[in-house]
Amino acid sequence: MPASAAEAARSSAVELRDVGLRYFGRDGETEALKNVSLTFAPGEFAAIIGPSGCGKSTLLSLISGVIAPTEGSVLIDGRPVQGPSRKVGYMLQQDYLFEWRTILENAVLGAEIQGLPMAQARERAIQLLTRYGLGQFLHHLPRQLSGGMRQRAALARTLCTEPDIVLLDEPFSALDSQTRLALADEIGEILKRAAKTVILVTHDIGEAISMAERVIVMSRRPGQVKSNHPIRLAAGNERLTPLTARNAPEFNDYFRTLWQELDINVQG
């Protein structure tokens, strides 16, 4: 399904043009992505789903500028990506909290590296951590936290630098299903209200439908864009939360469609 004309008309925050990526190693090369062309509008909330190993994390790494494409080009606000930019916040698939820093010190790592004013950064970090239920754990060390708590700390670390474009790689994977819904609810709301451009990688179809305005399905390795699904849940003018979205009548249709798209891929 092609992106709608209206979406194409909006200027793009992130654009990938015929992007290909191969990983090179002594024992050969791996083609992770092939001919990927995608456009994300400013303020868009998009989700990417696809089978494991199809290159979703690789795609985010390319957008973040941590790795460079072997073919094609990646543009942010129309300019080619030269390397990591302050505009982009990237939450990796695992938390990678530094075990020698407290939670608060971990959360301000990005601000520290980017040379932002530290007093404000600390305040912001404390605010974020408190909102994610870690207010009591600011001065704890990562090993004293559960997997889900660590993931929330990592999210705070990503948002602490106030990026315009937020890349989330399975941000809720370590959470129990209740916290997961609640936090997805909350994060989705915060990011949408702040008009951030969000690209969310998830393996949870329901999460993708309920949070995103568009779901992109990728095919098996080498990863290609298989299809685009704009999500429109009948909600009148009211914005649905991920929780209420699941009760929307269209939810199940989307779910079934996406499920089939994925299923076909799994069986090749």
């Binding site: 973040s64 390397g83 990591p84 302050r86 990796l92 695992q94 990678y96 990005g110 980017q114 630098t161």
Partner: peptide
């Protein structure tokens, strides 16, 4: 990956 994390912040 810890190094990669630092790199994502530039």
């Amino acid at each position: 990956n810890k190094i990669k994390l630092a790199q994502t912040f530039g």
